[in-house]
Design a protein around this nucleic acid. Structure first.
Lengths: 123, 123
DNA sequence: TCTAAAGTACGAAGAACCTCGTAGTTTGAC
DNA sequence: GTCAAACTACGAGGTTCTTCGTACTTTAGA
């Protein structure tokens, strides 16, 4: 029995479904990371903003769209979320991703940082 | 002037548009790799089948769909293609991808190989 | 208790994507 | 010149994705 994912809901009764580490699929992860808004979220989470509330991200989309993107990331196994009061805290599942796809997240994050520095090298 | 991509069309007059190495975008690459058919193509190209004709891949889709997927991979900068007679040869742009996103292709390929061995760990 | 904050669920509109079949192009061989 | 092989271009059909607004739920605080 995989009990890895049983640490849920500390200050709340609300539950959030997460895939177990073994259930994380490569194509789902790649698809989750292929969206600019979601890549921004992941990059900010990686840059020291762990356990951030969704509202803390300054995203160029509406509130419900933000919710949607966090859900996609969570269901893909990229982030873990838990409630704290009315806020939902998010954190990268670095260990689980590293175990399943070694080097993938690091490579994507490094690539994202480069792209952020040199957005589009004049086509 | 980037002259990296000027090696085209050896035995043919037909041209194929490729992005230069600097134009390869992370999100486009991730999106290109997020499809199961395209991931199969990339995995086979990596597994020693460099410079394969499109027809040589045994894909579960029609001929025109195959063409479409190769085009997506080429326009994303993942593969390079050139004609040889009536055949179109494909090859991974490993060097260009490594230069722009170090470790990314290797991580994806390693993940794809693992997924191929243990497709779905019984949800 | 009442209110505000944070977030969810639902449905809808529009865009993008995957797939296919058909018709056309280019090449090489006879 | 004729023919087949390999591939492309085009459009269509159906699905999925992104985005939004509105209404609802849960929690914390006055």
């Amino acid at each position: 029995m995989p009990t890895t994912e049983q640490t849920v809901a500390v200050t709340s009764g609300r539950r959030l479904a997460h895939p177990s580490a073994a259930e994380i699929r490569l194509e789902t992860v790649l698809h989750a990371l292929a969206d600019p808004v979601r890549l921004t979220i992941v990059r900010e989470l990686a840059d020291g903003h762990a356990d951030m509330a969704c509202i803390a991200f300054d995203l160029p989309v509406s509130k419900s769209t933000t919710t949607h993107h966090f859900k996609v990331l969570r269901e893909a196994g990229v982030i873990r979320q838990h409630y704290e009061g009315t806020s939902r805290m998010s954190r990268l599942r670095e260990d689980d991703l590293e175990a399943r796809f070694p080097g993938l997240l690091a490579a994507v994050l490094e690539g994202a940082r480069r792209s952020a520095r040199s957005p589009e090298p004049a086509a």
